[in-house]
């Protein structure tokens, strides 16, 4: 995808009550799997597929410092920005709460870009 043709949209992910503190939920938006975690009232969204070999981060292990370890080979990613000490970065998404609903900001290729 070329960044100048990308566009970002807030997309409804789930109801807030579906993700209480300590909870996690997997939502599929279009074809993108987004894993959502509520850590002490702060919600994080990360692409469910580990950038190493596609392990499902929704089944990962959370730590107190806001990291998640992939259940397959244990690579750790920071839920805030996807950074890692391993040679890969996970994709994270901004989250907003509006009323009873939770939205994630997904970047999708613009139509013109998709046609290329």
């Amino acid at each position: 995808m070329c960044p100048e043709h990308a566009s970002a949209h807030w997309v409804l992910a789930c109801r807030l009550e579906d993700l209480p503190p300590g909870g996690r939920i997997l939502v599929t938006i279009d074809t993108t799997e987004v894993a959502l975690f509520n850590l002490n009232g702060v919600v994080y969204a990360i692409n469910n597929r580990c950038p190493h070999r596609g392990g499902p981060l929704i089944r990962g292990f959370l730590d107190a410092a806001g990291g998640i370890k992939c259940p397959l080979h244990g690579w750790r990613f920071d839920l805030r920005d996807g950074s890692s000490q391993r040679p890969a970065r996970a994709t994270t998404y901004p989250v907003k709460i509006q009323g009873e609903y939770l939205y994630v900001l997904l970047t999708t290729p613009a139509l013109a870009c998709r046609r290329e």
């Binding site: 397959l72 080979h73 000490q85």
Partner: peptide, 11 residues
């Protein structure tokens, strides 16, 4: 075990 990777050590 290796705490930097998978916590359970099973693999």
């Amino acid at each position: 075990y290796d705490n930097d990777f998978h916590p359970s050590g099973v693999e």
